[in-house]
Simulated scan of single mutants.
Amino acid sequence: MSDAIDHSIAQPEENRFWLTTSDGVGIDAVLLRRAGARTTAVVVANGFTGTYRSPHTRAIAEELLPVGDVMTFDFRGHHGSGGRSTVGNAEIHDLEAVVNRLRELGYTHIAVVGFSMGAAVAVRHAAIYGGTCAVVSVSGPSRWYYRGTRAMRLLHLGIGRTLGRAFLKRFRKVRVTDQRWNPTPAEPREVAGEISPTPLLVVHGDADGYFPVAHATAIHDAAREPKELWIIPGMGHAERAVTPELTVRLRRWIGERLPPREQPR
């Protein structure tokens, strides 16, 4: 298998889905498919304010296609999905709805790649629901309510105040709940140990302006084998910081965790 995308290959087929979560929220999702019957799928879970419409997300999804079909989606409260964002709590139901639909479509090996908020959701989902063949956490927080960077202090102002939520709704197409978590869910570092025996890869940039590298090491240290930690020199935060070269590495890692007959050629 070539490490780079061959752009002479026909564009993937796009299938739009409207999913309903276990708590009744509608989720807007798109499945990118290559020709032929495939049993492996990869789910891309965006960070807060992210969307499958983003060119960054689309580029990541297309680079992952050699390993399996790829489903991207908007979390609740984001863009075309219903409901309101809870910024990482109830979103595990969104991810479970996506994984369930892929199972219904016949995929038997499903990997999840989450970014920032989506990384926290991916870790919690794998610990609580299980049923996936690999989990990748990119730029994820290890704990809640972190305010140790300027970016996170601004984010908390945005989601914690009426004016900030109005700004997010108008300019970022994100509707955030005004309700506080009750109860507060377990933190990613508290549940990472429950992901095993599913393989976990923790990826973080040493130039992340939201969460320092200590968040990645906390998740990795709390997890049980099989696990890996990649600290990427010069990398910033989440989807926008992911290079094609890093996506190829992620694709290889996922492919190596598939059964031999499922590994891409």
Rank of each mutant, 00 (worst) to 15 (best):
residue 8 S to M: 14
residue 17 F to T: 03
residue 18 W to T: 09
residue 18 W to Y: 10
residue 19 L to W: 08
residue 21 T to C: 13
residue 22 S to A: 11
residue 23 D to H: 06
residue 24 G to T: 03
residue 26 G to K: 10
residue 27 I to H: 00
residue 30 V to H: 08
residue 31 L to T: 04
residue 31 L to K: 05
residue 34 R to Q: 10
residue 35 A to H: 12
residue 36 G to I: 07
residue 37 A to R: 13
residue 38 R to V: 07
residue 38 R to Q: 11
residue 40 T to R: 05
residue 40 T to L: 06
residue 41 A to W: 08
residue 43 V to K: 04
residue 47 G to E: 08
residue 49 T to A: 02
residue 52 Y to E: 00
residue 53 R to C: 04
residue 55 P to T: 07
residue 57 T to V: 07
residue 58 R to H: 03
residue 60 I to W: 03
residue 61 A to M: 04
residue 62 E to L: 14
residue 62 E to I: 07
residue 66 P to Q: 02
residue 70 V to S: 04
residue 71 M to S: 05
residue 71 M to D: 04
residue 72 T to A: 09
residue 72 T to D: 03
residue 75 F to V: 00
residue 75 F to E: 01
residue 81 S to H: 03
residue 82 G to Y: 00
residue 82 G to H: 00
residue 86 T to P: 03
residue 88 G to M: 04
residue 89 N to G: 00
residue 91 E to M: 01
residue 93 H to A: 08
residue 93 H to Q: 07
residue 94 D to F: 09
residue 95 L to M: 13
residue 98 V to F: 02
residue 99 V to W: 09
residue 100 N to A: 12
residue 103 R to T: 06
residue 103 R to C: 05
residue 108 T to A: 15
residue 108 T to G: 11
residue 112 V to D: 00
residue 116 S to M: 03
residue 126 A to F: 06
residue 129 Y to K: 07
residue 130 G to N: 10
residue 131 G to C: 03
residue 131 G to T: 02
residue 132 T to P: 04
residue 135 V to P: 01
residue 138 V to R: 05
residue 139 S to A: 15
residue 141 P to Y: 06
residue 145 Y to H: 13
residue 145 Y to L: 14
residue 146 Y to N: 12
residue 147 R to K: 14
residue 148 G to E: 10
residue 150 R to I: 09
residue 156 H to E: 13
residue 158 G to N: 08
residue 162 T to W: 15
residue 163 L to G: 13
residue 165 R to D: 04
residue 166 A to Y: 05
residue 167 F to C: 09
residue 169 K to C: 03
residue 173 K to I: 01
residue 174 V to G: 03
residue 174 V to A: 11
residue 184 T to N: 13
residue 186 A to K: 12
residue 187 E to R: 02
residue 189 R to H: 15
residue 191 V to Y: 07
residue 192 A to F: 07
residue 197 P to M: 04
residue 199 P to D: 01
residue 200 L to E: 06
residue 201 L to T: 06
residue 201 L to E: 07
residue 205 G to C: 03
residue 207 A to N: 10
residue 209 G to T: 10
residue 209 G to R: 14
residue 209 G to H: 15
residue 213 V to W: 12
residue 214 A to Y: 15
residue 215 H to R: 11
residue 218 A to H: 13
residue 224 R to D: 14
residue 225 E to K: 11
residue 226 P to H: 01
residue 228 E to I: 05
residue 232 I to C: 14
residue 239 E to F: 03
residue 242 V to R: 06
residue 244 P to Q: 14
residue 250 L to P: 00
residue 254 I to S: 02
residue 256 E to H: 13
residue 261 R to Y: 13
residue 265 R to A: 12
residue 265 R to M: 09
